[in-house]
Design a protein around this nucleic acid. Structure first.
Lengths: 118, 118
DNA sequence: CATCAAAATCGTATATTGACGATCAACGAT
DNA sequence: ATCGTTGATCGTCAATATACGATTTTGATG
């Protein structure tokens, strides 16, 4: 067997299945991705510290345009970090503590050296 | 004052400072971003469970090309999640537990409702 | 129903990611 | 010095993310 043939084989034999990773890995990545921007972290922090349910106030408190904030809110909402509740002409957002707990749990699982039975 | 003038003012008066967010928010986002891809989570999990210091084995175990894995390793390394040590013609990677601890701590701070001065 | 305020969405321009073949650089061994 | 192996880097293409003005949608109110 030639020298670079081995490489070629290794390259081609690589597992085809699971192109996008484990369920768990995808989940960790999904939650992490939603936090992967300072604006979204700031929004989440705002909702957690100043208390639940704010809305256009977020725009006032953060240095981003309304459209931008709205976009980030959407990302956070879709990932389950926050929840938006329609309240008359405005929308009240609040953090979803379960997301944080779930994320922490997943991270702990990731870190723990316990054996995993596939 | 006109109706949409208020909006205009709010839009223009928005704080110019801190375009990219707090130090802490940027840090959380930075660490989260490095985890925001299943391949990188998988790599980290591999290093944490199978043990420190693997290398081309990562390529064999994961369903991505060598160049792709190398790229992801770089991202993880630059974010401080892992460390690479040159060992002859190969490179031995190992997880950096501090990163995880730091990230968890930041997340806990984020979640905690404690009052933050500044 | 005309109007206003609030927030989502659209449109768009720019920037960043992700994947990967191909190539390069480092190094051990002949 | 040459070769073979390993892993980083380059180049490129497609896809996704970001920012935000402009517009639309939604609902309260006169």
């Amino acid at each position: 067997m030639g020298p670079q043939e081995a490489r070629a084989i290794r390259l081609s034999v690589r597992p085809e299945r699971r192109r996008r990773g484990t369920k768990e890995d995808v989940e960790v990545a999904r939650l992490a991705k939603a936090l992967a921007h300072p604006a979204r972290v700031a929004i989440l922090r705002l909702l957690l510290t100043r208390g639940d349910c704010i809305c256009g106030d977020i725009v006032d408190r953060l240095p981003w345009a309304q459209a931008t904030v709205s976009q980030h809110l959407k990302v956070l909402k879709e990932a389950g970090w926050i929840q938006g509740e329609i309240d008359g002409p405005r929308v009240c957002y609040c953090a979803q503590p379960e997301a944080g707990r779930k994320f922490m749990a997943l991270l702990r699982t990731l870190t723990s050296t316990e054996e995993r039975s596939e």
